[in-house]
Amino acid sequence: MSNVIQINSRTTGGFTRMDNDLYEALIGADLSGREMRVAMAIHRLTSGYNKDSVKVAALYVAKMMYGDSAKAEAERANVSRAINSLIRQRVIFRDGGSRDPIEFLPVSEWKIDSNQSVLKSTHCVEKVHATVLKTTHIKERNTNTTADAVVAAVASTDEDLESDAEEQGTTTPDQPEASKAERIPYDRIVAIYNEVCGARLPKCIKLTNKRRTQIKGCWNLEFNGKYPFRKGEFWSAYFTDCLTNKHWTGENDRGWTADIEFLTKQDKVLKVLEAL
């Protein structure tokens, strides 16, 4: 007697077909756990219902992942970032804003992040401070992040920019300590912008006084008692989200593109954050 059990819709509740190329590509893709779960949710909502694309909100995907609970609401922002990250990596495509349909792109068009950038900052001959910064997107964030931690955007792989700013201070025992807001690591923030946006937007080659003032405004922006822009990972995620705005990346009748000065205006910052 054969021990092979025939599986059919009457015993399993149905099937969702997956193209072999897509299946194998997802197996080999260097995606985070959250990105993979979001991709599987998008696949379920498209192929699972014989559709090429689907209009779906980040909160609905979060509920698929975590159930209809407070955790789903708390994770909505993370899911939104995962969707944007998959769009940026060309795994999925959305022609427009957050309310437009999402679909999978052909595997040949995928641009999965695989490289890490090593940024070094030095302030004396004897001391070289090196950190590995994932400037592409969030891949290693703890999936049990609370709502406040999401806002703070703390990642185990990324060093606190605030502590980096403290090291760059030049105070002496006889001088009062300068305000943390006055010791902003501008060069490192510019490096993150150039790494994330440099291929699609104008690179920042000079920090003008106006740009410094606007970066300082982001640095001091407070949410629920937290200062999210004092984390390198938050800058990376923010600039990544900006790239999903097609008008800002040149798809307009003038061919105009945003730059670091535009993206650090407080009204533009709030527009991006409030859309999550």
Rank of each mutant, 00 (worst) to 15 (best):
P106Y: 04
R183E: 14
K120W: 03
R211K: 11
T240I: 00
Y193D: 07
I87L: 00
G232C: 08
D174L: 15
K111L: 05
I87K: 08
D148Y: 11
V107E: 02
E159Y: 07
T131G: 12
T244Y: 10
A165V: 01
W256T: 09
A147R: 11
S9L: 11
C197S: 00
R99K: 02
K268M: 13
N8R: 14
N142T: 13
N224W: 15
V54A: 01
T46K: 01
E261P: 04
P106K: 00
E109I: 04
T172N: 12
G48K: 00
E166R: 00
T122W: 07
A77W: 06
A199I: 03
W235M: 13
A147M: 10
A149V: 11
P228E: 01
A181E: 00
S85D: 05
F104W: 06
D21W: 03
H123E: 12
S69N: 06
A258L: 12
D267T: 09
F229R: 10
E182N: 15
R254C: 13
R141W: 06
T213Q: 10
K210R: 14
A149Q: 15
A25N: 07
T244V: 10
E75P: 09
D241V: 01
I42K: 04
Q175M: 15
Q89N: 06
F223T: 14
V61K: 06
C197I: 09
G198S: 05
M40W: 08
W248T: 09
G232Q: 04
N224Y: 14
V269E: 06
P173Y: 00
R211I: 12
D187C: 11
N224E: 14
P228Y: 08
G232W: 00
T157Q: 02
Y193Q: 05
S47D: 02
R211H: 02
A155K: 07
S32C: 11
F104G: 06
R94L: 05
K206L: 11
C242K: 03
R81D: 14
D30H: 10
N220D: 00
E261D: 13
Y227Q: 15
A57V: 08
Q89L: 10
T136Y: 09
N144R: 08
L133K: 09
K139I: 07
C218R: 01
T157D: 09
Q266I: 09
G217W: 10
Q89K: 07
N84D: 05
K203C: 07
E75N: 11
K268N: 14
V107W: 02
R94S: 06
E233G: 06
R37A: 14
A155W: 03
R212F: 06
R188L: 04
L201Q: 04
R76H: 07
V272D: 01
T208F: 01
Q175H: 15
N224R: 15
T264K: 06
A153P: 02
H43N: 05
P228C: 01
S163A: 05
S114K: 14
E75G: 05
Q89A: 10
R76C: 10
T122H: 07
V118Y: 14
N142E: 14
W235C: 14
A41L: 01
